[in-house]
Simulated scan of single mutants.
Amino acid sequence: MPRPLDHARRAQLLEGVIAYIADHGLTELSLRPLAEYLGTSSRMLIHYFGTKEAMLVAALESHRPDIGAMFSGIDDTATLAARLTSSFDRNTAGDSAVSLRALLQVLGAATVPGSPFRPYATDAITAVVTPMAESLHRIDPRLPDPEASATLLVSGIRGLIMDWWITGDTDRVERSVALLVAGVVTQPTEAGS
């Protein structure tokens, strides 16, 4: 009879998986060194998660922020622009940075044909683009393509965060984030014009 899952231990392992990926990378990930880092065995990781890929997806899902809440209650372009600009700051420090660094590696791995991460990556992108597009549409219902605007913002900010992690050029990247947000998040058109 299989041993029942210890849900508290499973949650603890998921925390450690994210930290490990952020520190050691995804490309060379194997269960044995990960298990050693987590203070367990590769057999126990398989017991808890089934496969390495399922473990990574579970770890990322456990760290997914409430994107809908991030964009709820935004009724004007100034608030949206401020929220987007501050999201750059939040995502480059603390626990958010650790989760995002792991997510970006999985998104990269999802570009490989037949990747087991593609369904998760597609869902992760949609989970951000959809509420942002809804927010843009709420602010200006006449915006021609809120989904494309949201995609430009999400992908642009994600790329700029990667640029910052690679180069460390905070000033240039922060100016670029501000330029991107200002270029996409425009004032709503006047009624009747």
Rank of each mutant, 00 (worst) to 15 (best):
S41M: 09
I139C: 05
L104V: 11
L179D: 13
P116K: 12
S30H: 13
F88Q: 07
L80F: 05
Q12H: 15
E134G: 09
A93E: 02
V106C: 04
K52E: 03
N91W: 00
D66C: 04
G114V: 07
T79Y: 09
A127G: 10
P119V: 11
A69I: 02
L143K: 05
W164F: 14
A127W: 11
R43P: 03
N91E: 02
M70E: 05
Q105F: 06
I21T: 09
F117D: 01
M1V: 12
L31H: 12
A97Q: 01
R138N: 07
S176A: 10
A19D: 08
L152P: 08
T189V: 08
T92E: 00
L152Q: 08
A54T: 03
P146V: 13
R10L: 08
L29H: 08
A93M: 04
G39Q: 15
V154P: 05
V184Y: 00
I161M: 15
P146E: 01
L56N: 00
Y20R: 12
R10I: 01
G159P: 00
H7P: 05
D89Q: 10
E53W: 13
Q187P: 15
S86K: 11
V112M: 15
G183A: 08
E61P: 02
V112E: 15
E61F: 00
D6G: 13
T92S: 02
M70T: 07
S41L: 06
L104Q: 12
V57K: 05
I74V: 06
V177N: 13
S96H: 05
P144G: 04
W165I: 06
G94P: 01
D171P: 08
S62Q: 07
S135D: 11
S96K: 01
A58E: 12
S193L: 05
T27V: 09
I139S: 02
A127N: 14
